[in-house]
């Protein structure tokens, strides 16, 4: 089943200044996996996602989505940025933020209409935020803001979802709600790639994992490669995590 490659990264190297942040990354992500990217702070996890999505300019390397260059396949890809990357005091409502997910399919100038609004309301419903649709976004809790970002990506109706630390600073209820949505996406055959920090939950939440620390350490099914050996290689210390079978 997992023979189609959704995302392919070739020889990706990224540097801000002299020191490379990502060094010669080759990565193949099969279709339909729920994948965690793990690694220590400064390992380049967010940078990897941002480079794949063309937000950052890599020094070298190429990205393809379903065997075509990323630029031609944007419609297949949705992105959930880190919650802290925007100013939540911006004068707009929850519904309005979710509507932004439809802007890509609309293209330049065209305004969103009833169809787009309906899609946005459905996405809000999915993340359990429908009662808050008219709320000013600064009046939402951290977990609710994260759900709004998730809903905005859901509206895009993409095949591949990239998420930058969606569990950061959210409570247990939101975390469970989010992971259930991610699992639903996988069930629908979508590919979900998540920058993740909590190693304890990797075996429970994900079926695929990539270890990253500037270089790619390992990538593959969680049950095969999520072990102390790879964790030690990635984090540099003797890391022991109890993997529940």
């Amino acid at each position: 089943m997992k023979d189609k490659i959704a995302v392919k990264v070739d020889d990706l190297t990224v540097a801000y200044n002299y020191k490379p942040v990502l060094w010669d990354i080759d990565l193949e992500i099969p279709e339909g996996v729920l994948m965690a990217i793990v690694g220590p702070n400064g390992a380049g996890k967010s940078t990897l996602i941002k480079s794949i999505l063309g937000i950052l300019d890599p020094i070298a390397g190429s990205i393809s989505i379903y065997d075509k260059p990323y630029e031609k396949q944007r419609a297949l890809v949705a992105y959930v940025p880190q919650k802290g990357s925007v100013d939540w005091d911006f004068p707009t409502t929850a519904l309005d933020v979710v509507m932004m997910g439809t802007y890509g399919s609309l293209g330049w100038i065209k305004r969103p209409g009833q169809k787009q609004k309906k899609a946005a309301l459905e996405a809000l419903e999915k993340v359990g935020m429908l009662p808050f649709k008219g709320r000013q976004i600064s009046q939402l809790s951290g977990g609710q803001q994260q759900r709004i970002f998730l809903a905005r990506a859901l509206v895009q109706n993409a095949s591949i979802y990239f998420m930058d630390e969606p569990f950061q600073g959210v409570d247990a209820t939101t975390e469970i709600a989010i992971i259930n949505i991610l699992k639903e996406l996988r069930k629908a055959g979508k590919t979900v790639i998540v920058v993740h920090h909590d190693l304890q939950t990797v075996p429970e939440y994900f079926d695929w994992v990539t270890f990253l620390n500037v270089k790619k350490i390992a990538t593959g099914p969680v049950k095969d490669i999520f072990n102390d050996d790879n964790l030690t290689k990635t984090y540099g210390i003797n890391y022991k995590v109890s993997v529940q079978e």
Binding site: K50, L53, G54, I55, R74, A75, V77, A78, Y79, P81, S85, V86, D87, F90, T92, V97, M100, Y103, G104, L106, G107, W108, I109, K110, R111, P112, R152
Partner: peptide, 18 residues
């Protein structure tokens, strides 16, 4: 629409192809 989304979230705007 383009102004609004750029003001709110520039990186995301880029990923949408603008």
């Amino acid at each position: 629409k383009e102004f609004k989304i750029l003001l709110f979230d520039a990186d995301y705007t880029k990923t949408l192809g603008f």
